[in-house]
């Protein structure tokens, strides 16, 4: 029965100030597709809600010099989908972001919210990790940058410091012959939560992989960057042995739990299957297919 205060500041400094001053009693509202559900379920009862959608840096998409992208943390999936070039450069990140919720949810849900919710099953997170995305964070002590994989700390927890807000994602420029893909296993065909999610980013030259990153979700307390899987792919022509080695690396990286959404055995096996399928799609795209 506590009252909830609502603030919608126009600047990040105001937002950080109010957020930090509330000392843990505040929650950030971007799209609200997790926050409002958790409040209605009685899981959390914030004393203050800081709506960040009035802060232009957090809702804009910019192309950086050299062809990278800077995406405001509160940009909705639908807005990202409507950007004329983003999906051509980062089709895997876009398909991952666009898998969050239904069409209606897409009008609200943001990659920043998906990351800060801390769910190991967040769809955009493995794709962002595979993309090598870096987040800009602003807090009472100023700004800093973190790779996406450094943000999650465990289910529902992040490594953000008190009062810190994720401002934006920066995705690097893409060399020629690069692309990415994201696949998830869900029992249904939509409106579901990943049992396993795999993001793969590849750069190909002369039929060989010159760079690769693999993000793996829903199989451990946090979304993982699977370095061994990338190393198995780099330098290869994506022959069966190297892809199988990458799949094995994904299976080895799994530290899943048995729960209502899947068993340990199931998740581990599916991680390998999805790695292979995701690599195939990313490679096809990288080759201009």
């Amino acid at each position: 029965m506590t009252d909830i205060r609502y603030l919608a500041p126009k600047t990040l400094d105001e937002a950080v100030g109010a957020f930090a001053a509330a000392q843990g009693a505040a929650r950030i509202l971007a799209g609200g597709t997790d926050l409002l559900v958790q409040m209605r379920a009685g899981v959390i009862r914030p004393g203050l809600i800081v709506d960040i959608k009035k802060i232009s840096e957090m809702t804009s998409i910019e192309e950086t010099a050299g062809g990278g992208f800077r995406i405001g943390a509160a940009v909705s999936g639908a807005a990202l989908g409507e950007h004329p070039r983003f999906g051509r450069v980062w089709p895997g990140v876009l398909e991952a972001v666009n898998l969050i919720g239904s069409t209606q949810v897409q009008g609200r849900a943001s990659p920043g919210g998906n990351l800060c919710n801390g769910s190991p099953a967040g769809d955009s997170v493995p794709a962002m990790i595979a993309a090598g995305a870096v987040v800009t964070v602003q807090g009472p002590a100023g700004r800093r940058e973190m790779p996406v994989e450094a943000v999650p700390a465990g289910p529902g927890r992040t490594n953000l410091k008190p009062g810190e807000i994720v401002v934006s994602f920066t995705l690097p420029p893409r060399p020629a012959g690069s692309s990415d893909a994201y696949l998830r296993m869900i029992p249904r065909t939509e409106m579901d939560i990943a049992v396993v999610g795999v993001g793969v980013s590849l750069t190909m030259a002369g039929g060989k992989v010159t760079a690769a990153r693999v993000g793996l979700g829903a199989v451990a307390p946090t979304v993982l960057l699977v370095g061994d899987a990338a190393r198995a792919l780099i330098g290869s022509t994506l022959n069966e042995a190297s892809v199988e080695a990458a799949a094995a690396a994904c299976r080895a990286a799994c530290k899943p739990i048995d729960d209502k959404r899947g068993t340990i055995v199931y998740r581990t096996k599916v991680a390998g299957v999805l790695l292979k399928r995701t690599v195939a799609i990313a490679a096809d795209r990288a080759k201009g297919g």
Partner: peptide, 16 residues
Amino acid sequence: VDNAGFLDYRMPVCSD
């Protein structure tokens, strides 16, 4: 009951 909601009690949706 560990799945008392439509997310984890999986009725088919249209696309299924």
